[in-house]
Design a protein around this nucleic acid. Structure first.
Lengths: 354, 354
DNA sequence: TAAATCATTGCAATCGATTGCAGATTAAAA
DNA sequence: TTTTAATCTGCAATCGATTGCAATGATTTA
């Protein structure tokens, strides 16, 4: 009696074919198989073809763990962001993935949930994984940066983007936040708004400091006074934006424009409160957000905002790494900071003229 | 778009400390170091402490490539989705990440760009990477599924979610699309709409077939006729939704409601065309989308839609894998399908009564 | 024809961590 | 005191692919 037993469910025990299996079958050395598979020119063409054919037949898949261990590199880029499912970050990641994929690199992705404690764990995991490059945008409560120094000390290329630790000498890809804010606020002023409020984000993140600088610079440029009561700290969610707006609009002398420098979500909070209070946008109140979230185009009125070219930013990050790799042989110098100029997108919420 | 550039010197990578370095320094065997680091109880407490201390001093990081090679597992989950930066997928990924992180697993993420050709490459890459589990949501033009069978044949746990190949016996996490559609269309009918159009997606993806079934079931339930001219194929982007709407609203007998079963983007296209044509929503035209994208809450009127619990779906996927792992010793095997019941979110765009 | 060059191939070490086995030391039981 | 058990440690093989070196035979050049 003959039984054919087929295991469909649990085949984890099944051994995968290795170069040794191919070598044995063809009665040649494993090294020749390896050379054939990596298309080395130290193998006979006939052998190469034979190996390739047999590999296909046996459904051979290279074990990258072994390969990478031997070669001392992992062809892997680690990415740490606060949240994967925030529009800006998912776009950056998409950009990184697109560029990396072309070069045969894989992405390992972690989220810090805006917590430094988790950020540190993520970074350590990625160091353990022997990523070749680590890309990070800092968590909001990130204060010291020993864990990043650690990345460098382990010989891993570190690239920071957007929310960067300025004092660390690493490759960086950032937006020119100050310039963008300057342009946005200038535009608001040119539309005839006189009392412009600022919703600012956590100042321990450089980006928010820069946006504030741009705001102040614009006021300075047009000789307008800086009014402290119009500057609200930490208003970077929709709810906080709404709350801040209620406070602002109940002032004796309320603002006639609000620059939500923190995010479009914050701007959305502003808009909703204004509409609920019967205040007309843009005639009585101008609103400008930051990030060009998809919804800013859809609200009524549509919201003026700033596009950060997030997918492009991701591609830039990845290509910066590859460029750095190409350069690695010489002792020559390499570019350290790439600044992408964001673009002001003027929509209805600030159009008072014309 | 790229501007100022600062130069710095390239840093040479140095050799990382291994267990041998620790062993040498303490004059013990590498195996003891390994045991100490993995908290085995086959090492003396004193030795263990000493090793841990020295490891910290030398800034030792385990080389997971080597560890995983030896152990025959990678503690890595591969994820393939059409686009990382689509709301639904980025949410699912965030959910997977959250659950995986807790178990010490890492995520490798690829995007198929809705192309089967790229999907196949991604899958092969992940097999090469020796992921322990591969999670996938199929590309729109995915037709045959040899590459998925390949995953199984390589002993990798395969989990499909949302856009699944029904005929493949794998773990699956899906939405109950039919039930959700049934409820949505029933709601529309109960609001008094009589001629309900359907915008349907590529029927080679099961999910869109199921949504259509739900639509038909609802019509049947209320004894309403199925009108072929009100069913539009492949209208699953904003532009295609808009185009379909123009066609529908110009019919001799136009619909009084449109169920954009494909996506909220499609529904948005419907809304914009309707408003541009001066048709009142919801009184003259009811609109229902699918997915509960953030913007559906913001449009005026806000759009009725269906929430898929995407983050939860991601967590479910990951936990399904871990549960399967815990079970691996037992002989019994039931290819599990977990169906998550989506939730109808009624908003203004379909509220004719009350 | 002898010497030199070239193309192929195999051997064996290597990457770093893990683990079965055996030997050594110590503690506990007889 | 002897036997047995328990604890600790090291040796060496292993995971799978890569690569420097040496060896083989073939081809070319002097």
């Amino acid at each position: 009696m003959i039984y054919f037993i087929i295991f469909t469910k649990y085949m984890k025990t099944k051994k995968r074919t290795t170069i040794y299996d191919i070598a044995e079958k063809l009665n040649i050395a494993a090294s020749s198989v390896s050379r054939a598979l990596s298309n080395s020119n130290h193998v006979n063409e006939a052998t190469k073809k034979l190996v390739l054919k047999t590999a296909a037949e046996l459904n051979y898949k290279r074990n990258n763990l072994a390969s990478n261990l031997r070669k001392g590199q992992s062809k892997t880029i680690g990415v740490v962001v606060p949240f994967i499912n925030q529009n800006f970050f998912s776009n950056v990641i998409a950009g990184i993935e697109e560029a990396s994929y072309k070069k045969g690199y894989n992405l390992i992705i972690c989220q810090s949930n805006e917590l430094q404690s988790k950020e540190i764990k993520c970074v350590n995991t990625l160091i353990n994984q022997h990523v070749d490059c680590l890309v990070i945008s800092l968590a909001a409560d990130s204060s010291d940066h020993k864990h990043l120094q650690n990345v460098i000390d382990n010989g891993i290329q570190l690239i920071q983007f957007d929310r960067v630790a300025g004092e660390l000498e690493t490759l960086k890809v950032i937006n020119d936040n100050e310039q963008a804010s300057l342009e946005a606020v200038s535009h608001i002023i040119e539309q005839g708004y006189k009392r412009i409020a600022l919703l600012e984000g956590p100042q321990n993140l450089d980006i928010f400091g820069q946006r504030k600088k741009g705001y102040l610079a614009a006021l300075g440029k047009y000789n307008m006074p800086v009014l402290d009561e119009l500057i609200i700290e930490n208003a970077w969610t929709k709810d906080l934006g709404a709350e801040a707006t209620r406070k602002l609009l109940n002032l004796a002398e309320p603002p006639d424009a609000i620059f939500a420098s923190t995010s479009d979500f914050s701007a959305l909070g502003v808009l909703e409160v204004a509409l609920a209070m019967g205040i007309k946008v843009p005639s009585e109140l101008g609103i400008c957000g930051y990030s060009n979230e998809a919804f800013t185009e859809i609200t009524s009125p549509s919201i003026t905002t700033i596009d950060q070219f997030s997918v492009y930013m991701g591609k830039t990050v990845a290509n910066l790494y590859f460029q750095e790799m190409d350069n690695k042989d010489g002792t020559e110098v390499a570019p350290q900071i790439i600044s992408i100029k964001p673009k002001l997108i003027v929509r209805t919420s600030t159009k008072r003229n014309g």
